[in-house]
């Protein structure tokens, strides 16, 4: 059986796995966006906090995904939730870092005139800092999403579901067409996410 026959005959279950994979990534990135942007904003107010938070995120990124999953297993057991937690941790760094740099890179003259005219710090944040940092934050979300689509395949190993299952089953049963089908679908998803989020990012840059 070649990979295309396989993909056509099993299209229903493949579709199911693709949706599951997408859902896993979407949820993980969504949570990471909420946490990451808030953390990224907070650390712009304190140099020490920024060094601390960015270092933690950096270290998290360097942990191999297998090791990360193995580490989380005793605490959260096998299944979807553990996989998602791992993915959230992986996507934090680009989002926190880009939120932080996006805000820090705003020229001082803009902030000085905003404060000097009597804007409250809250309004400066919501009306000036966040909108100006948005394209950079979006770039971080894009990096995180594309990366996590790949890592999510490994999360299938601990029963988080998704297209990774095809790959692991293919390995254990020596069925290369399964591995290939999983790899193709994951790649397509990653490329599409990159294109769509890249387009959004560009739209935000127009000024």
């Amino acid at each position: 059986m070649n990979v295309f026959e396989f993909m056509i005959t099993r299209r229903e279950s493949l579709w199911h796995l693709t949706v599951e994979h997408f859902y896993l990534v979407f949820l993980a990135v969504l949570i990471a966006v909420i946490i990451g942007i808030i953390v990224g904003i907070i650390i712009t107010y304190s140099y020490t906090a920024s060094v601390f938070a960015l270092t933690i995120c950096q270290v998290l990124m360097t942990v191999p995904s297998m090791a990360m999953l193995g580490f989380l297993l005793p605490f959260f057991g096998i299944g979807f939730r553990t996989g998602m937690i791992a993915l959230v941790l992986y996507s934090l760094l680009p989002i926190v870092r880009n939120t932080y740099t996006g805000i820090r890179e705003i020229p001082n003259s803009i902030l000085e005139s905003a404060y000097g005219m009597g804007m409250t710090p809250w309004h400066v944040l919501l009306r000036i800092q966040v909108p100006l940092a948005l394209p950079v934050i979006m770039a971080g979300i894009r990096t995180a999403t594309v990366m996590v689509i790949g890592i999510a395949a490994i999360a299938s190993y601990i029963g988080a579901g998704g297209l990774g299952e095809l790959i692991f089953h293919g390995i254990s049963r020596t069925q290369p067409y399964r591995i290939l089908a999983g790899a193709i679908l994951i790649s397509i998803m990653a490329v599409m996410a990159d294109l769509i989020l890249g387009w959004v990012e560009e739209r935000l840059m127009v000024r």
């Binding site: 020229p107 003259s109 803009i110 000085e112 005139s113 005219m117 009597g118 100006l132």
Partner: peptide
């Protein structure tokens, strides 16, 4: 209150600091 004070004082700096967005 500094906010109240500043709202009553016009402020222009050399770099102008217009909000680009």
């Amino acid at each position: 209150n500094p906010i109240k004070l500043r709202l009553g004082i016009g402020y222009v700096i050399q770099e102008i600091g217009l909000f680009p967005h």
